[in-house]
Amino acid sequence: MTLKLENVTKSYRKAGVDIDAVDTVSLSIQPGEFASVTGASGCGKTTLLLLVGGLLHPSSGTVSICDIEPYGLSSNKRARFRAEHIGFVFQQFCLIPYLDVRENIVSAALAARHPNAELRAEELMEQFNLSDRAKHLAEELSTGERQRTALARAMLNKPKVLLADEPTGNLDDANAEVVLKALAGFAGNGGSVLLVTHDARAAGYADTTHRMQGGKLSVD
């Protein structure tokens, strides 16, 4: 089992009221599985993704990735674990503005000390048709190129799990298809993908689809 959540709850206290953004969610994703979570804005999708990504401590329940519980690790070890096992893709691409395409992709090696980061970056740029944009800054790229760059960065360290938060939200159909196919391809190569989206068409690329409502998860 690559990814397993057991009764995970994340509560926030706002204006004196406890709100369960994620409410006793259990989820398992096998290696090679492409899972999606759909739901309306504010239903807790992004919170779920951050919990899985080791960035947000759950209020209760356990998260394990590759049989390791990241929240049982120290902050530095968890960061290292994240660098080696998890890749993130965001709706807003989140590229570093002063780095070019190649440097943005290689920046994933800042924490993981990838020995062949430059070579791997070349492969990924080739794969995502970015080679002729290698020296371009993020602001000089189209939205599709930006997301492909973010995807390449997420894949640099060959993670076991790819977490994608509305990766096609800002893309046209053609670019969205490229990204979704890439995610499917990642799963096809044995990786695990968790896609959160409100776009039913994007969720259609997934092997399993889950629906989230009011912090609770249900299988479609």
Partner: peptide, 16 residues
């Protein structure tokens, strides 16, 4: 701020 968030998501530790 955004860059810090990205770097942390990439696994860059607080000391770095």
């Amino acid at each position: 701020e955004a860059e810090i968030g990205i770097l942390r998501s990439l696994g860059v530790g607080s000391m770095k």
